[in-house]
Amino acid sequence: MGISVNHISKSYKNVKALQDISFDVKPSELFGLIGPDGAGKTTLFRVLTTLLIANEGTATVAGFDVVTDYKKIRSNVGYMPGKFSLYQDLTVEENLHFFATIFGTTIEENYDLIKDIYVQIEPFKNRRAGKLSGGMKQKLALCCALIHKPKVLFLDEPTTGVDPVSRKEFWEMLKRLQQKDITILVSTPYMDEAALCDRIALIQEGQILEIDTPEAIVKHYPKQIYNVRANNMYQLIKSLNDYEYNHSVYPFGEFIHYTDKRKDFNPDQLLVFLKSNQLSNIEITETVATIEDTFMELAK
């Protein structure tokens, strides 16, 4: 009764937005689609919410076929699009009331489900939606997507452009919704949010690179990664890129993540090389892969 996607493909003219996508989301699972802009995340959401028909393949949502049972899907899912799509000229309360009415229900009937989130915006219930801050808009949009008690919730980049405090609160809300038997498919371009999902699919250019739990995905990383640092970041990147044995060289905050082609790599050799390139204060230490390392390795 979650989501089942079987060999879905969708093209726009010359662009293959989705290429043979298959995966399942279990009931009450929090499943993440992780990929950059243009990966095909929004197209997939539109296919699953019955707003777009795929060229090939089939999919079911909450047990209903996205083509033949589209009306049933619409009353059983909540969808929060990436672009803020509520009525800017209606107040917070009016927007919520409007969406409840459209779905043939009332705010009171499902108040339990949205209570935790709604109390945070209730002090502003008479403010127009267009005048809310980013974090508050996002909370209101989530309330509106939940007001008819959907079985499946689709959230397309809900945290893009939202500051870290609001992002953290948002993910805490999703965890609580999951406890109420709602299946959640959420997309994000931010790899650090991947770790908060039960399972994730890494997606790029319309293709799924890998599907697994976040823990398993980082464990699959094939190499030992080293954190490298020196006195001059730019010279360090240049030197590492020139090093004939490098497998990958990626800036990662205050370090460079470096992997070597050789199986019997000894960091001391790299140290000698970097010193010969006039670098100083060199540090080379082992580190563990992140989701982002895995993503880049698979996308290479």
């Binding site: 950059p36 802009d37 452009g161 730019y234 800036p251 982002e292 996308a299």
Partner: peptide, 21 residues
């Protein structure tokens, strides 16, 4: 770099380091 894929994002930061250098 909002929304940019991780590899391009790193190329972007390499450009920033170059400019700073």
């Amino acid at each position: 770099t909002g929304g940019v894929d991780p590899i391009t994002r790193r190329q972007f930061w390499e450009m920033i380091y170059k400019a700073a250098n």
